[in-house]
Design a protein around this nucleic acid. Sequence first.
DNA 1: CAACTATAGACAGTTTCACTATCGATAGTT
DNA 2: AACTATCGATAGTGAAACTGTCTATAGTTG
Lengths: 224, 224
Amino acid sequence: MRISELSTASGVTIPTIKFYLRENLLPSGEATSANQARYDESHVKRLTLIRALLEIGGLSVAAARDVIDAVDNADLPLNQVFGIAQRAISGSNLSTNSASAESRARVASVLTERKWHVTDDNPGLAGAAKVLDRFSALGHPELIDLIDDYALAADIVARADLRVVGKQPNVAAMAETVVAGTVLGDAVFAALRRIAQEHVSSEMHPAPHPLSQAPASIPDRRKS
Amino acid sequence: MRISELSTASGVTIPTIKFYLRENLLPSGEATSANQARYDESHVKRLTLIRALLEIGGLSVAAARDVIDAVDNADLPLNQVFGIAQRAISGSNLSTNSASAESRARVASVLTERKWHVTDDNPGLAGAAKVLDRFSALGHPELIDLIDDYALAADIVARADLRVVGKQPNVAAMAETVVAGTVLGDAVFAALRRIAQEHVSSEMHPAPHPLSQAPASIPDRRKS
DNA sequence: CAACTATAGACAGTTTCACTATCGATAGTT
DNA sequence: AACTATCGATAGTGAAACTGTCTATAGTTG
């Protein structure tokens, strides 16, 4: 398969494929001479994954490279693959200032309640606490207690995730499943949440009629 | 409060505040003369919201403006506020080509099973179907069936969301809760999911020891 | 009240990111 | 032989989110 065929097969333009090659997102094809190389199905599949990570997952090219490296690194323990995939989403808020003691304690209370046991460096711990701090800062501390229900939901999701991963035939397939499940799973969940919110909302407030229309009525306040 | 005080109170630099004023994210202060204006607590709060939307929610400035307009527009039905907030996250994948009939049917089957009733234009319907298509394209159709468990989790989350919203004293507070809950809620959920994944993973595969370490071992494959 | 700092508003400049475009040398194709 | 495709290198583009500079004025301080 030549680069032009790879391009039509994957729907990615040749300049973009070259860009991904330069950025080490896509392994180079087998060189047949100084300026010819052959590509195969694995390249098509890799491009599909790259586009899914960028378009659906909203990852940056750099984050996608980290994730892809993890997939390729077959002898990486599964937990690390999970960590890399999760970290890639909504790019590392790790470096910034840490969360308050109150919020961290609140997160810890959830772990106790749910009997969750994780290592202290789990990035979710700091991430969750940091968001709880924002709830307070926004003047909506009542949102903090949502975390208990969210934790129950997260437990359900994580068990489903791991069940599917466990059914994979080999480690390479497991890693791919972890990545696809983690990055695209977020998008599915967000979509379902949107559906559920509308359902529950109309269930609780059975409005006469004009609920959920296209929001065409709000004025456009863009700069002049 | 002058702009310099607003800056220190909110932690946002003056040039950035001016930028937000230009972009209509932040209402201008009360003008006391041609080149003086007074700001108050509402401006501090608004800046806190803006930074939360941009930093935690990962919204673009344009998406944040839509969300903020919805919050300010007090007579907007709650469902529309939900819709705007959800649409702002992972910027409108609406325009692109639509999903396959199979995936849309699979999503419809979830609605039937969960007895969810929503309007046909709910953006979650197309969004979920589109991701299912990606699962197939990636060669991982087994991930499609995750949707049933995800839907159960989404139901739990949505009921919790609506319960908190319903407790708000007035419509303005409800709108703010919807926005904060939707945008920041995604971040909390993602963090909890990360925690739950590690817990469930170590529960299922009680590895001897070296699970979940800092992924320092993967080589850096950045371009030379 | 003079010196100095701060402010509003206008507008230009910067940085990062994800591509795109061009080029020269060579390879394959008709 | 003429023509198109490809490789690798390098440069350019456009959007996004700030950031910096400038001018005319306003407030503040010694």
